[in-house]
Each structure stands twice: as structure tokens, then as C-alpha cells.
Computed example of a mutant assay.
Amino acid sequence: MRLQSLAVPATTLAIAMVLTGCSGGAGGSGGEVKERKGSDAAAPTQATETGPLEVDYEVEAVDFGAPGAVTGPGTALALGQPAWLNQTETYGEEEVSGGVGVAVLQVSELDASLFDQFSNASEFEGYTPYAVITQHQWLYDTPEGYDPATVDLFPLDAAGADTEYLTSGFSLNSPGDSCGLLLPEYDEEARVLVSCFVALAKDGAVVTSAEYNGESYQSFIASSDNPYFPSPVVWK
């Protein structure tokens, strides 16, 4: 089984940005400058309301287009190209099945100073972190009160071999979002999520791609009837 993890971060960092519309005057309505008395009085000016400020996200969501047929085992995809998969997840006591589009958008090297946030930073000596940025688009609604479950993907090096990944303090088998990048918030209307996990390479290896092999981060033995494990979907 090609599932590995390395270390547990001592803390999880989150970056939040609050954006508000700007408006003049009380109550959110445009303020007005009253005309001064006298022949040289300036003409009144009206304040203009502005909408939300634009955000310079480091990676934007892409348009997956219309859903296609289920992507078969062994399919090679370019970065940003979606695989359409069937997904069955349990939310509380309810099991839900539906389609989901998933893609690897980008794989890029991160600065090793990322490890400084962890109490066991010395254990990462010789490792290079990589941001693996993914996008999901769900074709079904999740039960109220639950976030949609993402598809598990595994990082690969330039030779197609598995690499390690950084695990989360909340789940020892699952990678945490410790990339430190500014990504769009989950779009509830479109059911689109852009997220990131940290892959790890050492001894001169370079992370260049990722695969869907039909297994989860919690798997120890591959399912015998899983056609994707011997022939994964690969983005590179």
C-alpha cells in the first residue's frame, strides 16, 4: 500500500480575511455634502457606495464545464482538467452517493520555513515542502450541517513514485491545509472548493503530480475490487 505520513503539526494556522462594502454616512446610505451659502459655494457632491473589495487569490477556481462520463482507471490528465468520479460518503447516520469533479490545479514548491510553525521542526531536516492545490465540485447536496467530503489524492515525484505528505494534528492519516496560501472560500452555490495540502520530498526528489487511486488516507490494505489502485488517475 502506498500510503505514508510524516509528522503531526503542533498547531494549525488559519488565515481569515473579512471583506466589507464601504459606504458613506450613517445607516449605509450615501452621505451628502450640503451646499454652503454664498455665491462662491461649491456644487454638492454625492458619495458613491462601493461593493466588496477584490481579493488577489494566489490560485483561482477554474471552470470544469459540464460533467462528463465517469473517468476510467489509468486516465492521464493535465493540471486543471477534472476527473468525474462517483462518491459515496457517510454524513452522520446518512449515506449519500453522487458525482464529484476533482482536479489538481497546481503543484509548487514552498519555502522550508513552513516547518518553523511546528514544535518538531527539526524532524523535517532535508525535506522540501510542496503545495498540492486541488479543486472539487460536487454534483449533489450534503445533509444540512455537514461539509462535503473531499476525494483523497496522493502526491507523486517526477519518476511517478509516491512521496510523503504532511499530516494534520486532527487526523494522523490525513494531510492538513498548512500551505499558508490565500485561496477562495467554499462556494456553496456552485459547490466548488479550492484547497491545498503539503507534499514532502527529500533526497533530491521533486513533487510534480498527484494521483487518485480509489483508496482513502485511512486505508491500510487496498480493496481487491478497486480498479483504480493498480491503474490510478494521474494529473501532471
Rank of each mutant, 00 (worst) to 15 (best):
E32V: 14
P155F: 05
A47V: 10
Y130T: 04
D141L: 14
S219H: 12
Y130P: 01
A26G: 13
T12R: 13
T45F: 03
L139M: 12
E94W: 04
G68T: 13
S209E: 00
G99V: 12
G21C: 12
A159I: 04
P82Q: 03
P184D: 09
M1F: 10
G92P: 09
P143E: 11
E109N: 07
P82F: 05
Y127G: 01
A14L: 15
A43H: 12
G80R: 06
E58V: 08
V18Y: 15
V59K: 05
Y146A: 03
G180I: 07
P44R: 14
S168V: 12
Y228F: 15
V151M: 09
P232V: 12
F118E: 01
L77R: 11
L110D: 03
E54R: 15
G92W: 06
V100W: 01
V151Q: 07
P143H: 14
P230S: 12
A201G: 05
T48G: 04
G99F: 10
A103K: 04
S219G: 13
Q137W: 01
A158Q: 11
N213S: 14
G68P: 09
T48S: 11
T134C: 06
K37F: 09
S29T: 14
P9H: 07
G98D: 04
T142I: 13
Y165V: 00
L3Y: 08
L114Q: 04
L110S: 01
V59I: 15
Q87T: 04
F229L: 06
D157C: 10
G99E: 15
Q87L: 12
A159R: 09
H136P: 06
G204N: 08
P227C: 12
L156K: 02
P9L: 09
F115K: 00
Q46I: 06
L153W: 05
G74T: 01
L181G: 01
P129K: 02
D147N: 10
T90Y: 04
C179Y: 02
G160N: 02
G51I: 03
Q135N: 08
E93G: 11
A42Y: 07
A205M: 05
K236H: 09
C196T: 01
Y127Q: 11
V70R: 15
G27A: 15
F115R: 00
G74H: 07
Y127E: 08
S209F: 02
G92Y: 10
E188N: 08
K34H: 10
V70P: 05
T71E: 10
V8H: 08
S178E: 03
V192N: 06
L79K: 14
M17H: 05
D152R: 00
V104S: 00
L156R: 13
L200H: 01
T134A: 02
V206R: 07
E94Q: 15
L139E: 15
V107A: 08
F118P: 02
G101Y: 04
V233G: 03
S39Y: 11
G80I: 04
A26E: 13
E60P: 00
S168W: 09
Q46V: 03
A159T: 14
R36D: 14
F229N: 14
P73E: 05
V233M: 03
E125H: 10
K34E: 11
T48C: 06
G204M: 08
G74F: 02
T75L: 04
S113P: 07
P175M: 06
S224F: 11
Y130Q: 00
